[in-house]
Write a protein that binds this DNA or RNA. Structure first.
Length: 254
DNA sequence: AAACAACCCAACCGCACCGCT
DNA sequence: AAGCGGTGCGGTTGGGTTGTT
C-alpha cells in the first residue's frame, strides 16, 4: 500500500543538530510535554521531521539521561540481558536507567563485542567459541568460561535460579533473527523474561517526571545539563542527578 | 608536523507494531 | 476486517576525534 513518509523530504533539515535547534526543542517539550511527534517540529519552529525530533530528544536531550561510559556493572548487566534478550536494545535499555537503546547498542558494538570475542565467547550466542561445534556440551559451559565472563552471566536474577545460559533448550536457534523468537517461547517459564518482555514495571523504576506546563524545572531533578556541550546552563536549570543515580544504585544492588 | 588508520557516536533509514476509525 | 497514521525499534552510516606511524 505504500506508507506515507514520516515527513515530506522537502525543506526538512538533516544532519547534526545545532544548539539553537536543541534549545527550541527543549523549550517546546518542557513547556508543552510530548504530544504527537509529527506536530512537534512545526509547533516548535523547527525544520526537522518529527522522527528526528523524537530521536534527538530520547537519545540526547532527555533530562534523565546519564552521559559517559557505561560502568562495569552496567556493562555486565547489558551482557547478561543480551544473553537473554538478544538485540532487543530498547528492552535492555529499559533496565538501565538513564541509558538509551542507541547508547547501549553502540557500546555493545564497539566495546563489549570485542571484549567477549577476546575472551573467546561468541557475542551472539554467548557461548565459548571453541564449543560452537558441539552444542550438547552447554551444560558444562559455565565451568569452562573465563572467570570474568562467568561472572558476567550471573548478574541479577530475580528468582535466583534462572541461568542466562538456559538457551540450551534450543541453542541452534539462538542466532541472528531467530534468536528473539526462541526467547519468546522460553520466556513463559522465566519470570524475569516475562517482566522484561512485557510492559510491566522494570526491575528499577527508570521513569522520570515530566514537567507540566508552568512547572519549575528545578523540581524535576534535571541532571543532564552538565553534560551538554552547547551550554544549556544558560537556561538556568539546576543539575541534580540524584534520582537517576539512586535508581541505578538500586539496580546494581539487585 | 603530517598522513593515515582506527575508533566512536549521533543521526538516519526503513520496517514492524499498535491503536484508531 | 481492513486501511491508515503515529510511534518504536534495530541496523547502518557518515563524520568527527583520537591514536599511530
Amino acid at each position: 500500500m505504500g506508507r506515507q513518509p514520516c515527513c515530506d523530504k522537502l525543506g526538512v533539515k538533516k544532519g547534526p543538530w545545532t544548539a539553537e535547534e536543541d534549545k527550541k526543542l527543549i523549550n517546546f517539550l518542557l513547556t508543552n510535554g510530548q504530544c504527537c511527534w509529527r506536530a512537534v517540529p512545526k509547533l516548535a519552529g523547527l525544520l526537522r521531521c518529527g522522527k528526528s525530533c523524537r530521536l534527538r530528544w530520547t537519545n540526547y536531550l532527555r533530562p534523565d539521561l546519564k552521559r559517559g561510559l557505561l560502568t562495569e556493572s552496567e556493562e555486565q548487566l547489558v551482557i547478561d540481558l543480551h544473553a537473554r534478550l538478544g538485540n532487543r536494545w530498547s528492552k535492555i535499555a529499559a533496565m538501565l536507567p538513564g541509558r538509551t537503546d542507541n547508547e547501549i547498542k553502540n557500546h555493545w558494538n564497539t566495546h563489549i563485542k570485542k571484549k567477549l570475542a577476546k575472551m573467546g565467547i561468541d557475542p551472539i550466542t554467548h557461548e565459548p567459541l571453541h564449543k560452537q561445534a558441539n552444542t550438547h556440551e552447554i551444560s558444562s559451559l559455565t565451568d569452562d568460561q573465563p572467570e570474568s565472563s562467568n561472572h558476567n552471566l550471573q548478574v541479577p536474577e530475580t528468582d535466583g535460579h534462572v541461568n542466562s545460559n538456559d538457551n540450551s533448550s534450543s541453542p541452534t536457534e539462538n542466532c541472528s533473527g531467530d534468536e528473539s523468537r526462541s526467547l519468546d517461547i522460553k520466556m513463559d517459564d522465566d519470570p524475569l523474561m516475562s517482566c522484561l518482555l512485557g510492559d510491566d514495571a522494570p526491575l528499577v523504576d527508570a521513569s522520570w517526571k515530566f514537567p507540566a506546563a508552568g512547572d519549575d524545572y528545578n523540581d524535576v531533578g534535571l541532571s543532564f545539563w552538565d553534560y551538554q556541550d552547547f551550554g544549556v546552563q544558560e537556561f538556568g536549570f539546576s543539575c541534580l542527578d540524584n534520582m537517576v543515580m539512586n535508581t541505578l544504585e538500586m539496580a546494581n544492588e539487585h
